[in-house]
Simulated assay, not measured.
Amino acid sequence: MLDTHGRAAVQPIISKTAQSFLKMGLTANHITYLAFFVGIMASVLVYFGQPIIGVAVLWLSGFLDAVDGSMARMSKSSSSWGTVLDVTFDRVVEAGILVALALRHPEPTILLLFLLLAISIIFTMTIFLTVGALSEKESYKSFYYQPGLAERTEGFILFSLLVLFQGQLVVWTIVFIAVELITGIQRLLEAKRILS
């Protein structure tokens, strides 16, 4: 939702950063790899009990993840391989945060909720990726980007809440699961409408 409706507000900063990187001779794929490395570092920081720094580094990773796409469009170097890397690395970074939190909180209830959260993310992402692959619609990305209650920014907000308020992991994980399921249902209904 925030990505769809709020992108224009932050795009000037993303574009300026993309231009700066391109002037330095970097490619979109360089920044994709950098965003991935930074995202994994966020998980390491969370695991070692540095939640505030971990969240800051996670958001830096997300910012770089937005910059790489702008770089690809500016340099007309968008590629299917870049899209595969981008989507795959995003999921690995998210999984890393969940693994770090699970290792810090191995209580059965928390682990069960994390499992359900992972399933809800898989459910939502499966619909998103399938519709993106099957739809003839175009977006500013390399495939149709389905809007929904939970997009990348909402995911980062919810992961941040999990990391920063670990005393309320049960509550925030349930909220996260609910948001993912609502998003999945939204996307499923839209898929029926546009693909039927």
Rank of each mutant, 00 (worst) to 15 (best):
F143L: 06
I121G: 04
P108D: 10
Q146W: 01
M41P: 00
G62V: 05
S139Y: 03
D86P: 08
S135K: 08
L26P: 00
A118D: 01
Y145W: 11
T109S: 14
S120G: 12
V46W: 09
Q11K: 12
L113F: 08
T88N: 04
S78H: 02
V92G: 00
S77P: 02
A66W: 03
T88R: 03
S70P: 07
Q19G: 00
M41T: 15
I52F: 10
A66Y: 02
D90S: 10
F128A: 13
V46G: 01
A8N: 01
M125V: 14
L149D: 03
P108H: 09
S20Q: 03
P12I: 01
Y33G: 13
S78M: 13
K141G: 14
H30E: 05
W81L: 11
L22W: 05
P108G: 09
I31W: 06
F21V: 07
K141S: 14
M71G: 06
K23T: 05
L85H: 02
I127D: 09
D90W: 05
L45T: 08
A18E: 09
T88H: 03
T130Y: 12
M74K: 15
N29T: 08
P51F: 07
T88Y: 07
L134W: 05
K137L: 13
I13W: 12
L60F: 08
I13N: 00
L115T: 15
L85N: 06
L113Q: 13
H105Q: 13
D65Q: 04
R73Q: 10
V131H: 07
E107P: 02
S61N: 07
E107M: 12
T124D: 15
T27N: 08
A18S: 10
L98F: 15
T17V: 07
R73Y: 10
L111E: 11
L116F: 14
N29F: 00
L112M: 13
L45D: 14
L117C: 10
G148P: 03
F114R: 06
H105F: 15
K76I: 03
F123N: 15
T32G: 05
L111S: 09
L64D: 02
V93G: 06
A102I: 10
A35N: 11
A35P: 02
S80I: 10
N29M: 04
G132F: 04
L103Y: 08
I13T: 02
I97W: 07
L85K: 05
V84L: 15
S139G: 14
K16Y: 00
L26K: 15
S20L: 13
Y33W: 08
Q50I: 00
S61I: 00
E107I: 02
F114D: 07
I52Q: 12
L134R: 15
G39N: 09
A95W: 06
I13H: 04
L98W: 14
L45N: 12
L58H: 01
E138V: 15
L22D: 05
I110V: 15
M71P: 08
H105E: 07
L64V: 01
L58K: 02
Y47G: 00
G49L: 07
L98K: 09
S78C: 09
I53L: 13
I122A: 14
V92M: 10
L129V: 13
S20D: 01
W59I: 12
I110M: 12
S70V: 05
M41H: 06
G69M: 06
